[in-house]
């Protein structure tokens, strides 16, 4: 198995996520207007733009340094709930990745460490109508596909499909965490903005990382 998820590949992932967030900024904010406070698109765009600017100002040398810098930037620039949650996600991923290019299995472990960090910081569980509803099934699908011996491209596609399915499944849920939970039953019938941005993160991985390792 080639050790080829290197710093350039991961940087491309971060840049593609930033581009996608900017493209979907209004959609994320519209979803947040329905059940939250109408700032998810603006906040994620501000944070990811700052993360890309930081990469350009001081290009990190290795995968761990790269995702640590992205995580710290998000914690420092975003605020709200998504800053600490996405920031913790990238910081925990950085903790697993280390200085060397990651193989498929290491990347999957890093993604799951990110998931565990989000759980610890946000004290939410799958089914609460949060970003976890996209992230948890994505981690499960990635692990399962790699265990079956599928190449990274196919495994990431399965993970992204699971994230999208999880995102869509948030529509009927009643929110139990975050601002949407204040609505009680009225939060049902709306797609969760956090799960939506997380699905974009997995889609970005498919777009840029599929051919990188194997």
């Amino acid at each position: 198995m080639a050790d080829s998820l290197d710093v350039a590949a991961l940087e491309a992932w971060v840049r593609e996520f930033a581009r996608s967030v900017a493209e979907h900024k209004d959609e994320l904010t519209a979803l947040d207007s329905a059940i939250g406070d109408a700032d998810h698109g603006a906040n994620m765009d501000r944070g990811m733009s700052a993360a890309v600017a930081a990469l350009e100002a001081a290009p990190p040398a290795d995968p761990a340094a790269l995702l640590k810098q992205v995580g710290m930037t998000l914690v420092s620039k975003v605020g709200g709930a998504s800053g600490p949650l996405y920031g913790t996600f990238f910081l925990r991923m950085a903790g697993v990745l280390g200085p060397d290019p990651a193989d498929d299995e290491t990347f999957a472990r890093a993604l799951r460490a990110g998931l565990d960090g989000v759980v610890a910081r946000g004290k939410a569980a799958p089914g609460d109508k949060t970003m976890l509803d996209a992230l948890a099934p994505a981690c499960d699908a990635l692990d399962a596909a790699l265990a079956e011996g599928q190449p990274l491209g196919a495994a990431l596609a399965a993970a992204a499909a699971a994230a999208t399915e999880g995102r869509d499944a948030t529509v009927p849920l009643v929110a139990r965490k975050g601002r949407a939970s204040y609505l009680g039953e009225r939060s049902a019938g709306h797609q969760d903005p956090g799960a939506t941005s997380t699905a974009l993160l997995l889609d970005a991985a498919v777009t840029v990382l599929s051919g990188s390792a194997g």
Partner: peptide
């Protein structure tokens, strides 16, 4: 002071 309706950051 955070952004409008957005918590400030830890820094």
């Amino acid at each position: 002071a955070g952004e409008v309706f957005t918590s400030p950051v830890p820094d």
